[in-house]
Amino acid sequence: MSTKSIDLTLEIWRQKDSKSKGDFEKYSLENISTGMSFLEMLDVLNENLTGRGLDPVAFDHDCREGICGMCGAVINGIAHGPEPETTLCQLHMRHFNDGDILVIEPFRSRAFPIHKDLITDRSALDRIIQAGGYVSVNTGGTPDGNAIPIPSATAESAMDAAACIGCGACVASCPNGAAMLFTGAKISQLSLLPQGQPERKERAMAMVTTMDKEGFGNCTNERECEAVCPKRVSIANIARMNREFVKAALLG
């Protein structure tokens, strides 16, 4: 792995708090190692700003391994940046060139109000799960893990859907600010597995209704969500959710 240094110009959305009006600020950064991750590049910027007595850029991040779903921003118009199947923390600077101008914007959706700079409030996604993204079992008294055989392929499909990290890039990239991929993934996972069957209809109805209530847009099948999803969650899950919803709505 060979690393080199590049110079960048950053245009970053700065917004003091949820009530303030934000705007873009321009920063130039020199000598960025291409071995850095995108967030490490932002760390360098922040150290730089701090050293100059300026307010560092607030951004969400935690595991920096691409699994917690905490980080995320829109880089030059693409959520999580240009590399497919990559969260921002796993995006490395070797994918950029010397002299690039990077416009960094927060995830935008009516359902994701901005707290500060690049930090948004994604709790609407939690409320969708709270509406029904679970199997109603209490702790204890569950049957043996092998009591119900599940075909390997079914478990794999459920896992494909369950891989969602809840980062919200699907919402951010959707021209309609829809959360169909997120919701569809959870509905899919549980409708595929035998454990999810008893509450299948109620779950689909409740989660879809909550999704609408939270102010997310509708799906017009633009496929942007799938294209930016760091975990390659497929829109087949949206189709499955539609089936589940129609079945639940028509057949009750």
Binding site: F24, V74, G77, E105, R110, S173, A178, G217, E222
Partner: peptide, 13 residues
């Protein structure tokens, strides 16, 4: 639902 657009308009698809 997406009241504020992005400065850079690009499609991933």
């Amino acid at each position: 639902a997406r009241s504020q657009g992005y400065k850079v308009q690009r499609r991933a698809v």
